[in-house]
């Protein structure tokens, strides 16, 4: 195992060292590239004056709030569509008409309706997160063991309790997979909105560094955004394994 992780690290390390040596050898002067040592220094600098921490807080706040709202909406519709085949069939055209709209196309609408700031970003993130949750939770509810539903009927559980006591626990492992996917999407959409237009958070930070012709700071932001994306993914994968074990794996390859 250690041999394998050493092999995994070999390539990135070699690239970094080669890049550093090359940059020093030709005394790199560039608006778009900086040697790794300078990037690390810029990252420390950005940490020291808290600018990158504030930006991280802004981005994660928008991403997670949007994720929470999108998850609630998607889950409500997904469970409703999963339970009632009639409702699902009636709403099919409406859902299929709205779903393919790229989330980022809503950006100008959100911009004129809500202006710059957290709110428009949260709305766009929520829109993007609704769909994977809706589709996967609908599929999860449908694939619930029919005998569980029979038990619910035999016990004459009222609909609210049926959802709360039978459907959500049974579908939860697969719903969590959808949530993990959506969390990645939320981060991507938040950063994209910030890069495109919204003057806050990590996306705005990296754009500002580019416009200030600070390639070291720009690449430091890029590395940091990558670390956050990776950490979020690892965190949710571990949580999924801890919480649900093998139960969640069935939903991983639809």
């Amino acid at each position: 195992m250690t041999g394998n992780s050493a092999k995994a690290l070999a390539l990135p390390l070699a690239v970094l060292v080669a890049f550093e040596v090359w940059a020093r050898a030709i005394h790199l002067q560039s608006d778009s590239l900086a040697p790794p040592s300078a990037i690390v220094m810029a990252l420390f600098g950005a940490f020291a004056d808290f600018s990158i921490l504030t930006a991280t807080r802004d981005t994660l706040f928008s991403a997670f709030t949007g994720l929470a709202i999108g998850t609630l909406i998607g889950l409500a519709f997904g469970i409703a569509f999963g339970i009632s085949d009639t409702l699902n069939r009636l709403m099919e055209v409406t859902v299929e008409a709205i779903r393919p709209i790229p989330s980022i196309a809503l950006l100008p609408i959100a911009l004129i309706a809500l202006g710059f700031g957290y709110r428009m970003e949260i709305v766009i993130v929520a829109f993007a997160c609704v769909w994977p949750i809706l589709i996967l939770s609908r599929a999860a509810v449908r694939s619930i063991e029919p005998r569980l539903m029979e038990v619910a009927r035999a016990l004459r559980l009222p609909p609210a309790q049926r959802v709360w006591k039978i459907i959500i626990p049974a579908a939860l492992p697969r719903i969590f997979v959808a949530f993990r996917l959506s969390a990645g999407i939320a981060l991507i959409v938040a950063v994209t909105v910030e890069i495109a237009i919204n003057p806050l958070g990590l996306g705005a930070g990296i754009m500002l560094a580019q416009q200030a012709l600070r390639p070291d700071l720009m690449l430091a932001y890029l590395v940091w955004i990558g670390i956050i994306g990776y950490a979020l993914n690892i965190l949710l994968t571990v949580a999924q394994r801890r919480l649900f074990g093998r139960a969640a794996l069935s939903g991983d390859s639809p």
């Binding site: 390539l11 778009s32 990645g184 950063v191 495109a196 890029l222 993914n233």
Partner: peptide, 26 residues
């Protein structure tokens, strides 16, 4: 696969739009 794939897995969750400023600079 053993040497390259792990690096790719590390890069995968990176929000790709973050590459835009770098591309603009270049």
């Amino acid at each position: 696969r053993t040497y390259v794939a792990p690096s790719l897995e590390f890069l995968r969750p990176l929000p790709v739009s973050a590459i835009i400023p770098v591309a603009i600079a270049m």
